[in-house]
Design a binder for these strands. Structure first.
Lengths: 200, 200
DNA sequence: CGAGTTTCGATACTGGCGTATCGTATGCTG
DNA sequence: CAGCATACGATACGCCAGTATCGAAACTCG
C-alpha cells in the first residue's frame, strides 16, 4: 500500500499558491502590514479569500510566509574564530530582522504565536530550529578549533544571542549599532571561553 | 502665571479611570485577552467606549495598563554577589513575564509598538527604563564590591539578560527552567567578570 | 464509471475595533 | 456671568478578519 502523500479530493492549484504569495509580497511592500487586506490579496492573486484561508490560518501567517523569502539561509561563513563567527551570525540575523517587511511582520507573528499553539509550533519548526542549528554549527567549529573549554549548551547561547537582538529591535525599539553589537558578542565570547558550562 | 497642569475644559473623572481599569482587569482575568471586548469593558465600567478611547489608544494599551499592577517594582534585593543579584533579577523578571495576564498581553503590546511610535515611547518609559535601572543598580553593587574589572555597559547587559528571557518565553515558546536560567546567568557572569568592556 | 472527498470561485454574514456625531454637563478664564 | 474647551453617555457607522454556504470542478479509489 503506497501512500502517495496525496489524499483524496481535488489537489491544490500550485499556481494559486504562487499567485497568493506573490500578491501578498507585493502588497506588503507597497502599503505595509496594516493596510494589507485579505480581500485585496485575494483580488490581486485572482482568486478568493477562501482559497487563501485554505492555505494560511490568518493574515499574520500569510504575511509571515510572504516576508520569508529564502527557506535556505546561507550557512554562516567560517571566519576562523568563534568571535568572528558569532559576529557574522549576529549581523546576518540582525539584518534579517530589520528588513522593512520583517520589522512589521515579526511582532505580529509573535502575537499570533501567543494565540495559537499551532502557530507556535510552526514558528519553531521554521525559524527557531534553523537559527539554533546555525548557532550549533558555529559552536562545533569553535570546539574543533579548541577555543572552548567545554561544549556550551546550544539553547543557552541561542537564547542569549537571538534574544539580545530580538529584544533590542522589537521591545527596546532601538537597533543596536555596530559597536553595541560588538559589545554583545564580546561579552558572549568572554563568557563562553572562560567558564565551564553547567550540564543542561 | 501658574501652570496648573490642567488644561481648559471639563476634567477627567477619576472614578471612571478606576472603573475602566478595574473592569479591564476583571475581564482579562475572566475571559482572556482575545475575548475581552471594548464594549464589554465599557459596559462593566458603567461608561461608554468613547470614555475608554479618550484614555487609551487601543485595546492593547488598555489591557497593558490593566495587566501592569505595580508601577513600583520592588528593587532587587542585595544578595551579596553579582551572580546572586542577577539570578534574583532574572527570576523576578521571568515570573512577571509568565503571569497569565502578561503572557497574553505582552505579545500584543509588542505588536502595537511596531505600529505606533508613540506606544513605543510609552513602553520604553514604563518598562524598559525601569528594567534598565534595576540592571544598573545590580552592576553598581558589583562594581562597589570589586567584582568587576571595568564597569560594563548597562544597555548591553540589559539587552542580553532581558532578551534571553523574553525571547525564550515569547518567541521560542518555552519557559526556561531553573537550570536553564542558571546557565544563562552563569554565562553572563563569566563574561562580565572576565573581559574589559568596550567603551560604549 | 461511480462514489467520495477536496478545491475552487463567489458571495453573504458575523463580530469587533476604532471613529464620528450629538446633545449635555462641568470645569476654567476673563 | 459669559464664553470656551473638554469630558460625558449614547449611538451609529465604516472597515476588515475570519467563517459559512453553494454549486461546480477535479482528483482518487474501487
Amino acid at each position: 500500500m503506497v501512500r502517495t502523500g496525496q489524499g483524496p479530493g481535488r489537489p491544490r492549484d500550485s499556481e494559486i499558491d504562487e499567485a497568493v504569495l506573490g500578491a501578498a509580497r507585493e502588497l506588503l511592500a507597497e502599503v505595509g502590514y496594516a493596510a494589507v487586506t485579505m480581500d485585496a490579496a485575494a483580488a490581486r492573486a485572482g482568486t478568493s479569500k477562501a482559497a487563501i484561508y485554505r492555505r494560511y490560518r490568518s493574515k499574520a501567517e500569510l504575511l509571515f510566509a510572504a516576508a520569508v523569502h529564502s527557506p535556505a539561509p546561507a550557512p554562516t561563513a567560517d571566519t576562523g574564530s568563534l568571535a568572528g563567527d558569532l559576529a557574522a551570525l549576529a549581523r546576518r540575523v540582525l539584518s534579517d530582522m530589520t528588513t522593512p517587511a520583517a520589522r512589521e511582520v515579526a511582532p505580529q507573528v509573535v502575537a499570533e504565536v501567543a494565540r495559537s499553539p499551532e502557530a507556535a509550533r510552526r514558528l519553531r519548526d521554521v525559524f527557531v530550529s534553523g537559527e539554533r542549528a546555525e548557532v550549533d554549527a558555529v559552536l562545533d567549529r569553535a570546539t574543533g578549533r579548541g577555543e572552548l573549554p567545554t561544549r556550551p549548551d546550544v539553547a543557552t547561547v541561542h537564547r542569549v544571542l537571538g534574544g539580545a537582538l530580538f529584544f533590542s529591535v522589537f521591545v527596546i525599539g532601538e537597533e543596536p549599532d555596530e559597536a553595541a553589537l560588538a559589545d554583545v558578542v564580546d561579552l558572549l565570547v568572554a563568557g563562553l571561553t572562560t567558564r565551564s558550562t553547567l550540564p543542561s
